[in-house]
Amino acid sequence: MNPNYPYDIHFPVNLEQGKKYPVIFTLHGKGSNERNMFGLVAPLAEDFIIIGIRGNLQLGGGYQYYDLKSLGNPVREMFDRAAADLEAFIHYATEKYPVDPDKRYLLGFSQGAILSMTLALTMGEQLKGIVALNGYIPEFVKTEYALRRMKNVSVFASYGEYDSVFPVRIGHETAAYLQEQTEHLTFKLYPSDHGVTEENQLDFLNWFKQDAGLNH
């Protein structure tokens, strides 16, 4: 299979033959790229395979995974295709690389967080966990997609209290919805705009280590 997305892959330095590794797939925000995301998880590069997936649609100097009709209103056909293609990509990478299929994580910011939460709902327990930074779940995903049980999927969702793109109210609504779907939700607010603070980064890095059982 030919993957539908360009991507960057980083392996742990001391890769052991025959060993399977936990993986983090990163999904960037609108107009950004996969390299911007690597910095967020670089401290985990000794223990995880990190795969940065680049959106396949050019936008200014960066990329996106789908287009919008208006804020919070994705072009449905493009969104549907992105959700299906990303799921296929996750399976492709799991077969191609020494990925532990029981320890697959997604980390997404903004548009990437929207897709990460969507994939957690459609792939369910095929994923071990997701980190969703400043995103929401489109209404049509909740009502029209085929959703799987995600009771045991770990979710770290965070939001900027002063987010000027998606009001913090959306963060609270998203957390309330996720609370009903999973028994393993961590929801945090940070005194920031639409971005990732140092404290936010430290919190999710620790969350990854703990969730993957890597506290050494």
Rank of each mutant, 00 (worst) to 15 (best):
N4H: 11
Y5Q: 01
Y5F: 15
Y7V: 04
D8M: 13
I9N: 06
V13D: 15
Q17N: 10
K19F: 05
K20Q: 14
P22E: 05
P22M: 08
T26Y: 04
G31Y: 00
N33H: 10
E34P: 00
P43R: 10
L44Q: 06
E46N: 15
N56C: 02
K69Y: 11
S70D: 14
N73T: 14
P74N: 01
E77C: 00
M78C: 01
F79L: 02
D80T: 05
A83K: 04
L86V: 03
E87T: 08
A88G: 07
F89R: 05
E95V: 07
P101T: 10
Y105P: 05
L107R: 03
S110Q: 10
S110V: 09
S110M: 10
G112S: 04
A113G: 11
T118V: 03
T118I: 07
M123K: 09
K128T: 10
G129E: 05
L133I: 15
L133F: 04
L133S: 11
I137M: 08
P138V: 02
P138F: 00
K142S: 10
L147N: 00
M150N: 08
M150I: 13
Y162Q: 14
Y162F: 15
V165H: 07
V168M: 13
T174K: 04
A176K: 14
L178S: 07
E183F: 08
H184R: 15
L185V: 06
T186Y: 09
P191F: 06
G195D: 14
T197Y: 03
N200F: 08
F204H: 01
N206Q: 15
A212I: 10
G213W: 04
H216C: 06
